[in-house]
Design a protein around this nucleic acid. Structure first.
Lengths: 259, 259
DNA sequence: ATCTATTGTTACTTTAGGGGTAACAAATGT
DNA sequence: ACATTTGTTACCCCTAAAGTAACAATAGAT
């Protein structure tokens, strides 16, 4: 009747490189164990005129076995073997691509002073990269605890070798995290949550200054989230100053004032 | 000038899920390290009208970082990270697909008596499966040593627990392999190399009978190679008889004659 | 300030792969 | 012999992605 096929499974198989009809047909044969083209067609709704070619292709790829005759019968090779094969081929491909990409890198990385990152994964990736390079001091601002939780382990490790300063705007919301937090002034946090440029609402969610020379800030502008990496020592110095200024006076340490 | 891009690399990246233009653009940015859309366009020949959108997409996926301005600059995220991410996602997908496929297997495998396998990988896979199921006796015929080499380790292991009989048509060609071989009669090997059915030349290359009830034969018909699996005990018995008959008389053992 | 070249965008065409449909030939079964 | 099922062929359609051409917006030069 109407497709009992798990659409998520079909989608996954497509991502593994099968066409939609190939995915449906393979699932069909696996479901039916040992079967004819017609049965597969009826279960999967792949047009009967197409099913023969599709099953042939799958057999050629080694995913099916065939018993000739009229009708011809088909049998699925164990999914574990099939998926394993696809995976192996993909991984070989990935390894080869990586090798080839690495050969392109003849120049040393020109490190430009400012970059913008527009994917969630890219942001986390870059934060982790910066964290792994911190030598002495790290200042972290966060407007909500989620992102800190994400990097809790990395930060905990850093705590042993570096001076860490955590700045937040509401101490309460962070009390579950095992760090010592300092609170910003009310004015500052109001300001941070309410920056509008060209009609776009900016919401600074996270900020980090590493060794006073590299910073990354994560904000949402409109409905998009992005991060900005800045490596200009001057700018970072200014940023650091600002963060030092906006701490609640009672928490400001002597040595920070002297900078 | 004319593309210095490694086409193999482009092809690999396409297999990893990028479009051709995305692959070229990413390779371009990796090559140029830190660069503008125009430079990427000139290096890769991706149409200039397309390069902006393509680079944006790559940034959205997290493979590039952006420095806004006019011109906008682009920088590649470390290929190791990028390829690693793609690989992880793929593998998750593969694992999920396998789980879902395994849920479909409600019935016990109906074992049909005869199957045809049309991919090299599928053939090897099935041979290995059969080898792993042998309990007592295995008879192997091979017309060339390559395929035996492929399974040398598996066969060596079997030798300890089973009676193994190797039948070949030219002892000389197999002397490098660490097994005891028996030779067929000249007539038989001539016959085997010269079977023509419906104008198609059949060349039996490999044959194996496991415990007298399951057999697999690999042959090329025309220019195609395929394998036939037969699980009918009767047929296997007959096949076994034939193989026993065609051994050079001097090598025929007593107990084989008595069967 | 004006002109020019470059940057970035938009709208369109083309192509190829995959999917769907209809109609026919070949084989099977009554 | 006839009908049914199996298998094939020739189409059409749609979409994703590549290519093209022309225009707007910006930056640099005179």
């Amino acid at each position: 009747m109407f497709s009992q096929l798990n659409p998520q499974l079909i989608h996954n198989l497509e991502r593994l490189g099968l066409t939609e009809n190939e995915a449906k047909a393979y699932v069909g044969v696996v479901s039916l164990r040992e079967t004819t083209a017609r049965e597969v067609h009826e279960l999967t709704n792949v047009p009967r005129a197409k099913i023969y070619e599709v099953l042939k292709v799958l057999a050629k790829k080694g995913y099916l076995e065939i018993r000739q005759g009229s009708p011809t019968y088909f049998r699925a090779v164990d999914p574990k073997q099939v998926i394993g094969k696809i995976k192996d081929e993909f991984i070989n491909c990935a390894i080869e691509a990586l090798d080839q990409l690495n050969e392109l890198s003849y120049e040393l990385p020109k490190t430009s002073p400012v970059w913008c990152i527009q994917s969630e994964w890219g942001i986390k990736n870059r934060i982790r990269e910066i964290l792994s390079g911190v030598k002495e001091e790290l200042i972290v601002f966060a407007s909500s605890p989620e992102i800190l939780q994400e990097f809790e382990a990395d930060l905990k490790k850093l705590e042993k070798t570096c001076r860490l300063t955590f700045i937040v705007n509401e101490l309460d919301r962070f009390k579950l995290l095992p760090f010592e937090f300092r609170e910003t002034t009310k004015e500052f946090s109001d300001f941070m949550n309410n920056i509008v440029i060209d009609g776009l609402q900016y919401d600074e969610q996270f900020f980090m200054i590493a060794d006073g020379k590299e910073s990354i800030g994560v904000h949402s502008a409109g409905n998009k989230r992005e991060a900005v990496v800045i490596k200009l020592p001057v700018v970072c110095y200014l940023q650091k100053m600002i963060y030092n200024r906006v701490l609640e006076p009672s928490f400001i340490k002597k040595d920070l004032n002297s900078v």
